[in-house]
Design a protein around this nucleic acid. Structure first.
Length: 112
DNA sequence: AAAATGACTTTTT
DNA sequence: CAAAAAGCCATTT
């Protein structure tokens, strides 16, 4: 495989992630890991996070619908996770006392 | 080119 | 159940 091809592959991965991100229904969530799987690169959860960081929060993308595998907010490491939580609560996502949401019920996958 | 990094995840304490 | 360790992999130093 050529280096060029690999580069195109990661570019495709990134646009896939964005495309999927855009169609996550309001009030539903995806984890970094499953989003990576849906975009065609299992094991690349961290790279999904990297990409989302690049979107720099103020965009129109529904970045708030991506959370970690334990059902919690992960953005506190780069800023305040309060914003993400508020945005999610505004669309109906509830969080329990330990900061977790019901992943079993709210997890979404294309073709759910 | 080797080592560190990190919006992660899974397994093991 | 919470915390630590180990695994992971593209990107950045």
């Amino acid at each position: 495989m050529s280096v060029e091809h690999l580069k195109l592959e990661t570019m495709a991965f990134k646009s896939n992630v964005i495309a999927i991100l855009e169609i996550i229904p309001i009030g539903r969530v995806m984890t970094y890991g499953t989003l990576a799987v849906a975009a065609g690169k299992p094991g690349n959860a961290r790279q999904v996070g990297e990409l989302l960081r690049g979107l720099s929060i103020t965009t129109d993308h529904p970045w708030q619908r991506v959370i970690n595998a334990s059902g919690r907010i992960s953005t506190y490491k780069i800023g305040t996770g309060e914003l993400q939580r508020a945005l999610l609560e505004a669309e109906g996502v509830r969080f329990n006392a330990s900061g977790r949401c019901d992943l079993q019920r709210l997890r979404w996958f294309p073709n759910d």
